[in-house]
């Protein structure tokens, strides 16, 4: 709000001016638009709406309507690759550049595993599960300047992104969350305050099983052996030296993964988080335990 000199000058001026009080304050000139419609020479005549037609009557045509012509958007044949677009899963993009930005701004703690909840909490990413958004698509924009060693879990990632993260000695997993779990991850506090027990994460739908069980996409259901083989393959393809995870001082953190049925790090399905009393209530009934066990 203003440069330093202006602020200082204004405050110094105030010293020699009458006391700021209810009687001598005013708004900036021209802040408020006059709600009245001017007459005659004060903006009268057509009142700025032009002469005749829908402009004057301000009943504008709907978007795309061409007054009886075959409209542009109907003139083309169908584009079949868009068929069912409103039913498909969408992954709003989040780039490596933005990820690096929130890390540099200290809005993300990289000493812990990163998931969609921590990225949303940083304030740089948002998504709406009810618009068929199924989480983060980590894109390769800024892959060249990405320089953080992280354990990250996203919902979609390309080969370049996987390579960029593994080049820095980090770990990436792609994991599926059903919309209900995504609601919880988007605003965990709101869910905990509702007093419900944490549900189980659902398994991916049939058309997503392949992606999330594949080692190439670092799926969370893939065989760890296959993933470690593919890490080496990718390192050779992109020409970097693969960091040995076992020798890493942060080995524990880098190896932390969620259970396929787990939604929050450190919290298991079935638990109730009591924020008021700062305690966790765990199910004791054997039937409940069997239900929530994965």
């Amino acid at each position: 709000m203003g440069s330093r000199q202006i602020t200082e000058k204004a405050l110094t001026m105030l010293r020699s001016l009458p006391r700021v009080s209810l009687g001598n304050i005013r708004d900036n000139p021209g802040y408020k638009k006059n709600p009245k419609r001017g007459r005659g020479q004060h903006g009268g005549d057509k009142h700025g709406a032009g002469n005749k037609g829908s402009g004057q009557r301000q009943n504008y045509m709907r978007l795309g309507y061409e007054t009886g012509n075959n409209p542009f958007y109907l003139r083309m044949p169908h584009e079949h690759y868009y068929k069912g677009h409103h039913l498909r899963r969408q992954y709003p993009p989040f780039s490596l550049h933005e990820l690096q930005l929130i890390i540099d701004k200290d809005r993300l703690d990289i000493s812990k595993p990163i998931d969609i909840a921590s990225i949303v909490k940083s304030g740089m990413y948002n998504f709406t599960p009810d618009e068929k958004h199924f989480g983060i698509n980590l894109t390769d924009v800024g892959a060249d300047c990405f320089a953080a060693k992280i354990n990250i879990e996203v919902q979609w990632a390309s080969e370049q992104v996987i390579a960029a993260i593994e080049k820095m000695g980090g770990v990436i997993t792609t994991a599926y969350y059903d919309p209900h779990s995504l609601y919880l991850l988007r605003d965990p506090k709101k869910f905990f305050e509702s007093g419900q027990s944490i549900p189980r994460r659902m398994i991916p739908p049939p058309d997503a099983i392949e992606y999330y069980t594949s080692a190439k996409s670092r799926g969370y259901l893939a065989d760890p052996e296959e993933i470690s083989k593919d890490r080496l393959r990718l390192a050779q393809k992109y020409g970097y030296e693969l960091h040995v995870l076992e020798d890493d001082p942060n080995y524990e953190m880098l190896c932390e993964r969620k259970d396929p049925r787990q939604i929050f790090y450190g919290l298991e399905p079935g638990w109730v988080i009591n924020l008021k009393d700062q305690c966790i209530l765990k199910p004791k009934d054997s039937e409940l335990q069997r239900f929530f066990a994965s």
Partner: peptide
């Protein structure tokens, strides 16, 4: 305590 004294913002708060 040493911010720009925006009289217009003060006025809008009072309103």
């Amino acid at each position: 305590y040493g911010a720009t004294p925006r009289i217009d913002i003060i006025h809008r708060n009072v309103i």
